[in-house]
Design a protein around this nucleic acid. Structure first.
Length: 432
DNA sequence: CTGGGGTCCT
DNA sequence: AGGACCC
């Protein structure tokens, strides 16, 4: 007798992610951090984006600004580190390579998370989860948890449960848990814990009397689609065990590139803004060239601080480029069209540019008439070109070209070594 | 003194 | 174009 369809073993989703990834990555190379409260700071040493369990236990909220933490760091024994993306990127690649050995169906979802298509009996799945967890710990040195369920949304929820409940030992197979326990969990957790639901949607759901994940899982998907969106309907169906969010193919290329920074000291003059926009133009050019892409549209923007609600100003311009280009001269010129919208004396806390409508270089067959005279030149020539056109100091690699300009460079005062990617920063191992 | 880079849907 | 979400 064949099993009913619902009993047949369908492929499931395993969600694997690294516990407090940046802090764990730092720890894997500096064992002296073990057991200490550690936070990793955002760009500019702005705020705590990752906390070790000890830092969480101190009650440090996610996103807490460093200037509020700094005065108490010593008393807490708190270690703060600037984010070291080179290190994290390298560790991430090693984790993903390892996970790829356990399933050919791997979707790298973010720097520290992956979904894997998996099959097997409940016992086999639990064993697979434990194997992956142990392997990553042993081979890469960072802790992961695993959630396994019929849908991505439930797999992420199972993972969160595994992280927060030591009884799981880091691996939760949703369907192996007693239904009453699952309902109890879903009844206790707010909808804001679900993937895809944040503060705005939580408020709107609450108005309808939907507070817990259990409430949402019992809502009528069609009503949810009508009152919210297909996205939220998919979430409801996924909570009910119906897969709606498919595994994705690896994306090649991007739809947009953004270059944007907050300034260590705000910019108050058009001249200062011109310099910053020039650097972004050059960076955009270099990145587009690296990916073999050209842009058709450039948006430039600036803004005052969100944290100072008076005299706010968020000027922006959207510039269609005359032809798809990665040329720093054209990009910089387009970025400079923001300048007439910049008011002297206004304190701009950040600025940036975004290039969109990207396409592979050389995909079009341009008429010679419209060819860009700068397109064929080499980078060195291009930099000379920009400097000649816009004046010394208008552009440069990093901040080298804007000496004497405002201090808008990134603050990274507590950077750890790039242990794995730079020979001169390799960790030293002392044999006993 | 409070990050930066993305995607998708309406 | 803007608003929501993600990490």
């Amino acid at each position: 007798m064949s099993k009913p369809a619902t009993m047949r073993r369908m492929p499931l989703i395993a969600h694997v992610d690294v516990n407090c990834f940046y802090a764990s990555a730092e720890r894997s190379f500096d064992p002296s951090l073990e057991g200490k409260p550690v936070v990793v700071l955002s760009n500019n040493d702005g705020c705590a984006v990752t906390r070790s369990p000890e830092a969480k236990a101190l009650g440090i909220p996610l996103g807490e600004p460093w200037f509020k933490l700094a005065p108490r760091a010593k008393e807490w024994g708190l270690v703060a580190l600037s984010s070291n993306y080179e290190l994290y990127g390298d560790i991430s690649a090693r984790v993903m390579e390892l996970l790829g050995r356990y399933s050919a169906w791997l979707e790298v979802y973010s720097i520290d998370e992956a979904f894997l298509g998996v099959k097997g009996t409940p016992d086999e799945l639990l064993a697979l989860g434990r194997t992956m967890k142990t392997a990553v710990r042993r081979n890469v040195g960072v802790p992961v948890c695993v959630g396994i369920a019929a849908t991505k949304t439930l797999a992420k929820l199972a993972n969160k449960w595994a992280k927060n409940n030591p009884a799981f030992d880091g691996v939760c197979h949703w369907d192996s848990v007693a239904p009453a326990d699952r309902e109890s969990l879903m009844g206790r957790l707010s909808v804001i814990e679900i993937w895809g639901v944040a503060t705005r949607l939580t408020k709107r759901l609450n108005v309808l009397g939907i507070h817990s994940i259990l409430d949402l899982s019992r809502a009528d998907p069609v009503m949810i689609r009508d009152r919210f969106s297909v996205v939220m309907m998919r979430t409801v169906l996924e909570l009910q065990g119906t897969p709606c969010i498919p595994m994705e193919e690896e994306r090649i290329g991007r739809d947009q590139l953004i270059f944007s920074r907050s300034f260590a000291t705000s910019i108050t003059t058009a001249a200062g803004m011109r310099q910053v926009l020039s650097v972004y133009g050059q960076q955009a050019s270099a990145r587009l060239a690296k990916h073999g892409l050209q842009a058709k549209v450039l948006t430039a923007f600036a803004g005052t601080s969100h944290f100072n609600p008076k005299d706010t100003s968020y000027p922006s311009v959207c510039v269609p480029l005359p032809m798809p280009t990665a040329d720093p001269v054209l990009l910089t010129r387009a970025a400079h069209t923001l300048l007439p919208h910049i008011s002297e004396g206004v304190r701009y806390a950040r600025a940036g540019i975004m290039v969109t409508d990207l396409r592979p270089t050389g995909n079009q067959a341009p008429l010679a008439l419209f060819e860009n005279p700068h397109e064929e030149r080499r980078v060195g020539t291009l930099l000379d070109d920009v400097t000649r056109r816009y004046g010394r100091g208008s552009i440069g690699l990093g901040h080298a070209g804007i000496r004497g300009g405002p201090d808008w460079t990134m603050k990274r005062d507590m950077l750890s070594p790039r242990y794995t990617t730079h020979w001169d920063e390799l960790p030293l191992v002392k044999a006993a």
